[in-house]
Simulated scan of single mutants.
Amino acid sequence: MTETRVREEICRLGRSLFERGLTPGSSGNISVRLDDGGWLVTPTNASLGSLDPARLSRLDADGRLASGDAPTKEVPLHTALYQTRRTARAVVHLHSTHSVALSMLPEIDPRAALPPMTAYYLMKCGLTALVPYYRPGDPAVADAIKGLAGKYSSVLLANHGPVVAGETLEAAVYAMEELEETARLYLLLRGLNPRFLTPAQIADLSKTFGLTLPEHGHE
């Protein structure tokens, strides 16, 4: 895909996420790694609903701004995911309501923020880690992401929002949507003792679809 097409896709999918209420105001950011090792990222204080392809931030392979507007303050977050998820070519970070709410609940397991509720959650997201709160843009969040050792493609930032890495931008967006809907299901079913997928069902999904999940079991 040409860089021009990547720019257009970032703006198209960003607008779709914004128009469906998945990230309000100027919150949220998207990046895509390019073939030359550099990457495109949405600018700081930009609404995903009104991005200009020509003004996206173009960073070189060392993370320095090469062209476009100043990049999002969350560059350290994106950088850490690219460094630890070698297959990642895109990162999406939103402030989607249900995922943020989930990140604030006291019972959440940092190694598996959501139980295995549906097949598509596991297929799209795997397990989701929860990292502690850091102020937006704090470089220390990169150390927290690196501490996950690349085992997770989806992560919740406590009291902040979800971030997802994918092999393509479309895959990252689909995974983000699945994470948000699963968080919504969890909140709807909280306290109702729902049935989750069994270990045998999870093993079948892993075998059939080649899933590699972090070692963690829900009873």
Rank of each mutant, 00 (worst) to 15 (best):
S27C: 08
E181H: 10
H95R: 03
L189Q: 14
E3W: 00
R58A: 13
S99Y: 01
T212C: 05
A175V: 03
D60Y: 00
Y174W: 14
P139A: 10
R190A: 14
E3F: 00
L48D: 11
I108F: 02
L205D: 11
L105V: 06
A101D: 07
Q83E: 15
E215Q: 09
T44A: 09
L130N: 07
M117R: 12
L187H: 10
G21D: 05
L192Q: 15
N159K: 13
K146P: 02
S67K: 05
V164D: 11
A61R: 15
S26L: 07
A70P: 06
I202L: 02
G217F: 04
T118N: 05
L148R: 05
G150F: 00
L179I: 01
R33H: 06
V141H: 06
G217P: 00
L13R: 13
E177N: 09
A175I: 02
L40T: 08
V141D: 03
A101K: 03
T208R: 13
G14T: 07
T198I: 03
L56Y: 06
R135Q: 15
A46Y: 04
A183C: 11
K207P: 01
N159I: 02
E178P: 02
V75W: 15
Y82W: 00
V75M: 11
R89H: 06
P53C: 08
A200L: 06
P116M: 02
T208E: 13
L185M: 10
L65K: 07
A54G: 13
L114M: 02
P162T: 01
H98F: 07
E167T: 15
F209K: 01
H218C: 05
L105H: 07
G49T: 05
H160P: 02
P43G: 07
E181Q: 12
S153A: 13
